[in-house]
Design a binder for these strands. Structure first.
Lengths: 141, 141
DNA sequence: ACATAAAGTGCAACAATGTTGCGTTTATCG
DNA sequence: CGATAAACGCAACATTGTTGCACTTTATGT
């Protein structure tokens, strides 16, 4: 796949610069079907880059609707690529996520929509998160 | 309310010892209708106790089905009291939670049940979490 | 009441995640 | 090419959570 071109366009479309680090980061996200944390990325990058750079890139990507938070299970925030039509904050790409108890990967369940909330109107709901856990497709074999 | 007696019974029923620290901790949970984190508790306790002690008490309470994790939003794990009939791990008291974007408190929505998951059987689901966010009843006034 | 075992507490030290400030480098656009 | 804004790297720090070890307190049986 020619992700290089795709990534360049993606960055450009959001007014971000196409740097080697950010290109490699997005390539990593495209190469995995599960979510990645900052430390996952640091570990997978070819050259050893500063953690701060990764954190700042992730924040920027989230703000621009390129990535969304897939889970934050105490071992850090994991991000995944947003769908095609996800705008800047607030994100609208609302689907469920799955966290594996064995390998601790987080998967986006794109086809599982987050259920509508039915709740006392003392609370104003603006966000919903729906997260399943158990054993994932890989560990299940 | 005579929570003192209640708390003693609760601890005893789980084979835990009734110490001043743990009694005060549980009293704190009974006095608040939102979830508390380890640092919340350290701040609210009358005497300055070691963080480690609080962490270990929280873990113990969770293991014995006295507390459950209400949220873990990056600023730490918040716990809340379990319902009457919650057994030891795994917890079965499954309800939704609400996190306020303004005051950052977490509320248990005891009457909002967690929706059933409808998901590919490549994944084995054993846990579900359903968390709403927005503005809470206090901040909404 | 007393001894004992188990549970609970405190201290020190540590690991991991995430942030901020600041100076330098790099990409992009005219 | 030159200017500007974004991106990067380093140092330093805050917070959350853990572990090992020694000591204290609670509950239990006799």
């Amino acid at each position: 796949m020619d992700n290089k071109k795709l990534i360049g366009d993606l960055l450009h479309a959001h007014g971000l610069k196409k740097t080697p680090i950010r290109t490699e980061m997005l390539a990593l996200f495209m190469d995995h079907d599960f979510a990645l944390s900052a430390s996952d990325i640091v570990a997978k990058m070819t050259a050893g880059h500063d953690r701060v750079t990764i954190y700042r890139a992730l924040s920027s990507f989230e703000k621009h609707g390129i990535l969304h938070r897939a889970s934050e299970d105490g071992q850090g925030i994991k991000y995944a690529l947003c769908g095609q039509h996800c705008p800047d904050e607030p994100h609208t790409d609302k689907h469920a996520h799955f966290i594996c108890d064995e390998c601790h990967q987080t998967y986006c369940l794109e086809d599982v929509k987050v259920p509508k909330a039915n709740i006392s109107n003392e609370f104003s709901v603006t966000g919903v998160s729906y997260t399943l856990s158990g054993i994932c497709k890989q560990c299940n074999r």
